[in-house]
């Protein structure tokens, strides 16, 4: 049974970098803490360590964002993503999108319209 409000958080605008930083770290810790559950719930054929690395990568991507407004939106989206993941509101394919090989789109041979359509690329 899933509680609709489990892991929900009211969206709130942080007005200082220090506070934002702490909230972000809390979110990161929550993600890492539940990484094993992600693997179990979604039945991923990926070790937990790799999931942890992926979470880290996703956070590291935005390490150098300095705009507080942008950071707030990112936190909000990260929190939503976490809630959806941990409540099992997604399906395996949605989780596996994170583990796609990013070189895949660049290959000229696979760049025809139909192949990109099948892949779900924009």
């Amino acid at each position: 049974m899933t509680l609709p409000t489990a892991f929900a958080e009211t969206t709130r605008f942080s007005t200082s970098h220090a506070e934002m930083r702490i909230r972000m770290l809390n979110l990161y810790r929550r993600y890492i803490r539940h990484s094993r559950e992600f693997v179990n719930n979604y039945d991923l054929d990926i070790p937990t360590s790799e999931v942890k690395t992926k979470i880290r990568q996703e956070f590291e991507k935005h390490r150098h964002v300095n705009d507080l407004a942008v950071q707030n939106v990112m936190y909000m989206k990260g929190q939503m993503e976490f809630q959806e993941l941990v409540n099992f509101w997604k399906q395996k394919c949605h989780v596996m999108k994170y583990f796609e090989n990013f070189d895949y789109y660049d290959k000229a041979a696979k760049n025809s319209f139909v192949q990109r359509f099948l892949k779900g690329a924009d």
């Binding site: 930083r21 770290l25 990161y28 810790r29 890492i32 803490r33 942890k52 956070f59």
Partner: peptide
């Protein structure tokens, strides 16, 4: 760094 440290904390958990 801060993320490493949180990794370590969760490992300890």
């Amino acid at each position: 760094d801060s993320l490493d440290y949180n990794d370590a904390l969760v490992a300890l958990e």
